[in-house]
């Protein structure tokens, strides 16, 4: 015991000396290690079950901040389940079970100490079908603030305007903020849902086939928006539209029957897939 401790101490001292040395002689390198980008999102050996059904097997992925990651794969491959693991939306389903580590900013979001409502504030989500609340446009955006205890009218006013501008919807609705959101078109509703998600300033945005219910023009607007939002947020999208994945994402993960088959730069996945399944899927031979 005693000796080990001494050894440790000695080691620490030498390490310190090294550090001092390196700091003196290589300040730039030291600086860059400090600034080395930490992974925004990481999953390690994640398994998911619905009851006895093993929907995801051993998924390990690391995602850098301010990137767009596309999850692709045929229906039922587990990509939506995987996406919903990041804001623990799956918890709402009876019989759901997850094993493994899901880290956001280095913290395991399935820890006992992690408060699920806090997590969801940090990880916004946009759903497949636009689902605005049956309230005014203003109240839709304000809701996230209100449920998180912000009631100051000035703060809410500013946030509503900023969020709607960021979601490229402000000019279309600024005169009708108090009209019912259900009167908007599908594409507008979906942008409202994005505004609603970013109003509470999350750092991650999940989009579950967010454009699949929209026409091409609305889809184009949302894709432009994703490119814009990337500057401030880390974005993950699930999509069945492979051109969309190519257009908007930096990295792509291909899922097949519960396995994460391949994860790489989007260009690589589509131009030079390493796996047979990926090649067949992105080549349009099935799916």
């Amino acid at each position: 015991m005693e000796t080990i401790r001494i050894e440790k101490k000695m080691k620490t001292n030498t390490e310190k000396q090294h550090e001092i040395v390196s700091a003196e002689f290589m300040p730039d390198e030291n600086f860059s290690t400090k600034r080395k980008v930490m992974n925004k999102i990481e999953t390690k050996n994640v398994h998911c079950w619905y009851g006895d059904f093993h929907v995801l097997r051993d998924v390990t992925i690391a995602i850098e901040p301010n990137t767009v990651t596309a999850l692709i794969g045929p229906s039922g491959c587990g990509k939506s389940t995987y996406l919903r693991a990041f804001n623990r939306m799956n918890d709402l389903i009876d019989g759901f079970k997850l094993e493994g580590d899901v880290l956001i900013d280095g913290k395991n979001i399935y820890d006992k100490q992690m408060h699920v409502n806090e997590l969801r504030k940090n990880v916004g989500m946009v759903f497949q079908k636009p689902n605005p609340f049956p309230k005014s446009i203003y109240e839709n955006v304000a809701y996230g603030l209100r449920v998180n205890g912000i009631n100051d009218k000035k703060v809410i006013d500013e946030t509503v305007e900023r969020s709607l501008k960021q979601a490229a919807l402000w000019n279309e609705v600024k005169d009708n903020l108090h009209k019912n959101a259900l009167g908007l078109s599908g594409g507008q509703q979906q942008r409202l849902c994005i505004a609603r998600a970013i109003a509470i300033q999350p750092s991650v945005i999940l989009m579950d086939e967010a454009t699949s219910a929209l026409d091409p023009i609305s889809t184009g607007k949302i894709e432009d928006l994703i490119a814009e939002l990337k500057k401030d947020y880390t974005i993950m999208i699930v999509t069945h539209n492979m051109q969309q994945a190519v257009r908007v994402s930096d990295k792509t993960a291909f899922f097949f029957l519960g396995d994460m088959v391949e994860y790489n730069n989007t260009k690589e996945i589509f131009n030079n897939p390493q796996q047979e399944h990926t090649r067949n899927y992105v080549g349009g031979r099935f799916g």
């Binding site: 804001n87 939306m89 709402l92 409502n117 806090e118 997590l119 969801r120 504030k121 916004g124 989500m125 759903f127 689902n131 605005p132 609340f133 809701y143 996230g144 449920v147 998180n148 849902c193 609603r196 998600a197 509470i200």
Partner: peptide
């Protein structure tokens, strides 16, 4: 889901 996703209890 929309409500829960915004951190509502």
């Amino acid at each position: 889901e929309a409500s829960y996703a915004l951190g509502a209890s």
